[in-house]
Design a protein around this nucleic acid. Structure first.
Lengths: 174, 174
DNA sequence: GACAGTTAGATGCAATTGCATTAAACAACA
DNA sequence: TGTTGTTTAATGCAATTGCATCTAACTGTC
């Protein structure tokens, strides 16, 4: 009983708390700076990029919203409306899904490809500015490894998606 | 001209992109898990904790909203309404500021102290779960250092606040 | 095929956020 | 003092998010 409580109520060390705090802060600042850069350039917000990238990667047949949902860790109702907006802007299209009457396929439009390519340089510059300019290559690798440990095992769905989104941006972007 | 462009358009390496992506993802997951834990426990969201902590730390005279704003990297209009809500819940009080007719002082109530203390164990457990359980003490230290490098210099206002919020939570909690 | 259970996606509504603007108080200065 | 510019804080309004619920289509079982 005594030992049991010690285990259950184990409190984070100061070091752990510091890492936590800085994780929150660093992400907030980094995200803010990229969103600001995109807005300043008259471009859509960052989530749009992730969606567009995922959809473009999926090829001419696009993909199902629920696939997108899992790849992006986005709530279903949230994604549904996000697609509404992106579609309204003309960057993706919803096509009906032949093999599943409930569903649909989200596919890229030409305008979508264009805008995604326009966003990438701005995005890239912001990443470089927030991370690349501040860490050596070795440090960035260590940071990536450590953060990977925080991601892994948190949620079944996220594990296979670890290398997702932005990582593959490099391949597509130019 | 050629060299100039190379500098300006320097693109992030794959390693840097990976670190970036995982920063976003790790924070998203970690934040989500703590918010979920708080909600499940019937407690207010995480921002409330940060506000309450900052206000409690400020002592009996409280602090000015604009100080809070800077400490927390929160937009002014956003904070204004956040205080509205926390005040409506009875956890802080707005008192008028003797030395500045425009302003006010946000001070803690007893109920606020109680709720903050109730939130801490849940918060602490979530931090331990998201970070402490996944990294050794040494790794957490390295992670904190690297993240600190991402924070420093990004914004003048944030530098003096690096050790902010949650870090000091430990002292107050319990 | 009928029926219970599950999954995909949308939607009404409330809460929160972002943006632009406003009002009041202060500060500096002619 | 009157004028101009700045800082503090609030607020109207639109956009986004979160929650709960709903519909339609699928799956499996009998």
């Amino acid at each position: 009983m005594y030992l049991y409580n010690i285990e259950m109520d184990k409190r984070p060390s100061d070091t752990v708390i510091r890492a936590w705090t800085r994780l929150m802060r660093a992400q907030q600042l980094a995200l803010g700076s990229i969103e600001g850069a995109l807005k300043a350039a008259g471009l859509p917000p960052l989530v749009w990029y992730d969606v567009l990238l995922e959809v473009e990667r999926a090829g001419p047949d696009g993909l199902r919203p629920y696939e997108l949902e899992r790849a992006m860790l986005l709530a279903q109702y949230n994604l549904s409306r996000l697609i509404d907006r992106i579609e309204a802007a003309g960057y993706v299209e919803r096509k009906l899904c032949t093999d599943d009457g409930r569903g649909q396929r989200v596919v890229m439009t030409d305008a979508g490809k264009v805008i995604r390519r326009q966003m990438w340089p701005v995005y890239a510059r912001a990443i470089e500015c927030a991370v690349g300019d501040r860490l050596s290559e070795e440090e960035a690798e260590i940071l990536g490894d450590l953060l990977g440990r925080l991601i892994g095992g948190q949620d079944d769905l996220t594990i296979p998606k670890t290398a997702s989104n932005t990582v593959r941006a490099r391949e597509l972007a130019q």
